[in-house]
Amino acid sequence: MTQDNPTTGTSPGVSSGPAPGNAPDNRTREISTPIMAALFVAIGALVIWDTTTYTDADSYVFPRTIASVMIGLSVLLAIQWLLGWTKGDDVETSTIAKSIPRRIGLVLAMIGAALLMPLLGFLISGILAFTAIMFAAMYDPWTPYRAIVYPIAGATIVVGFYLLFSRVLQVPLPEGTLPF
């Protein structure tokens, strides 16, 4: 993996550090690590609080133990940070800042589709999401060829999958409450 590949951040393995060769980013680490540690302590505390409402002893042993371990690990992480051992854990932020609107557009389109499904039905919300994401992912200029082929291809894909799932696989996809 090299620097020119900006998607290295989603390392697919269990590796959690930067790819070898990436320069450590000394500017952001100072803030993120203690914030994350505090966040996980808070989550752990929230879990332990929730376990106090359980009626069955079998139910709380596990989450309470794990939450305690997580809090302990987060404290260790904070100590690591204090000792200056967490340098280079963060992925460079300059690549994150790039194309923020496109990233947000993608996420909003996906969540929007899920929320609109019960209302508009699966097909319509799927087409809307597909269109929105297509614009978010479009970097090439819209030539006449693309302007014709892409929407047709998109519609074929969405309708094709819709029919595959609803008719062949008999998945009861949301119909929507609006009359179409």
């Binding site: 074929t156 999958f161 029919l163 595959l164 062949v168």
Partner: peptide, 15 residues
């Protein structure tokens, strides 16, 4: 595309 055509055909038949 051929894949999709196949899917579409079978889906249409099933419909």
């Amino acid at each position: 595309k051929t894949n999709l055509t196949k899917l579409l055909t079978s889906a249409a038949a099933a419909t």
